[in-house]
Amino acid sequence: MDALTTALKVASSGLSAQSQRLRVVSENLANAQSTGDTPGADPYRRKTITFAAELDKVSGGSTVSVLKVNRDPTDFPLEYLPGHEAADANGYVKMPNVNPLIEMADVSEANRSYQANLQVIKQARNLISMTIDLMRNQ
């Protein structure tokens, strides 16, 4: 496999990894208010995603893949909502451990990385078309 095709393949692996990261972030944001429905029940637990470099055996390029989607083990913040159906005996409800600010920062970072990968794809495509242009009738 030639190097430019490898570059395209590696960059597309980056695109898919970053889009899966966006998926996890959107799951977290969508469930930022998902509490339990029985007294004292656990609410939605924040998901985290980790990447790992992987050697693509066919092309020799180091692609990226999602290593694991984990759960954030931090404590749930308590909110005093006595009328809520998930409130415990003291009237406290466990809220999901999702911090929208952290999630938005994660979105921005994923966005930047996605753009960088797209740039690589554009660049590699340009290089390929420059090579093909060599054969064009002048």
């Binding site: 030639d2 190097a3 430019l4 490898t6 570059a7 395209l8 590696v10 960059a11 692996s13 980056g14 990894a17 970053q18 990261r21 980790t50 990447f51 790992a52 470099a53 092309s59 390029g61 180091s62 692609t63 990226v64 970072e109 994923a110 990385s113 960088a116 990968n117 740039q119 690589v120 660049q123 590699a124 290089l127 090579t131």
Partner: peptide, 27 residues
Amino acid sequence: QAEWLSVRQAAIAGNIANANTPGYRAV
């Protein structure tokens, strides 16, 4: 030189794809 440039582009693609991979060393 064209081949060298393509290989370098592939190496950079690997670096950018792994920009958020913990412990990854740029090549």
